[in-house]
């Protein structure tokens, strides 16, 4: 699916990356805990999150996230926008809550960047 379709489905506003909407995305990861994003999010995935600070952009960059989708009507901080422009990571924002965002994308064929985490991971 193209990022432009994701934008359409989620009725999202593009804050950064208007020129990158032709990129293809197939997978997603949703979390507000940056340590979990670091641990589990995979390169090329969408990151669905309610965090709006520049830390999200840094984390996304280090995991080679394709695009950040802010959920729950959140808007990125100016620092996050500046950093996303610099690091060339698209930021889209949707009013849908994370559950709805995930549900809708899943029903259109986007899958998790991984399915399960084994509990042994945390030991």
């Amino acid at each position: 699916m193209k990022l432009s379709e994701v934008k359409g489905i989620l009725e999202a506003r593009v804050f950064v990356g208007e020129d990158k909407l032709d990129m293809e995305v197939h997978t997603a990861f949703g979390a507000d805990l940056m340590s979990d994003v670091m641990a589990f999010a995979k390169a090329g995935s969408l990151l669905l999150t309610g965090l709006t600070n520049s830390q999200v952009v840094k984390t996304a960059a280090s995991r080679n996230i394709a695009a950040i989708i802010l959920v729950r009507g959140k808007e990125p901080s100016t620092e996050a926008i500046d950093m996303a422009k610099e690091l060339q990571i698209p930021i889209l924002a949707t009013q849908y809550i994370l559950f709805e965002t995930a549900g809708i994308l899943y029903s259109k064929g986007i899958v998790g960047c991984l399915k399960k985490v084994d509990s042994d991971f945390y030991k």
Binding site: L33, M34, S35, G50, L51, T52, N53, S77
Partner: peptide, 19 residues
């Protein structure tokens, strides 16, 4: 301001401190 926080890492990992 929405999103502004001075919370440390401990507070953030508890799920708070998102401003």
């Amino acid at each position: 301001q929405q999103g502004y926080s001075t919370a440390n890492q401990l507070i953030r990992e508890m799920g708070f401190g998102a401003g």
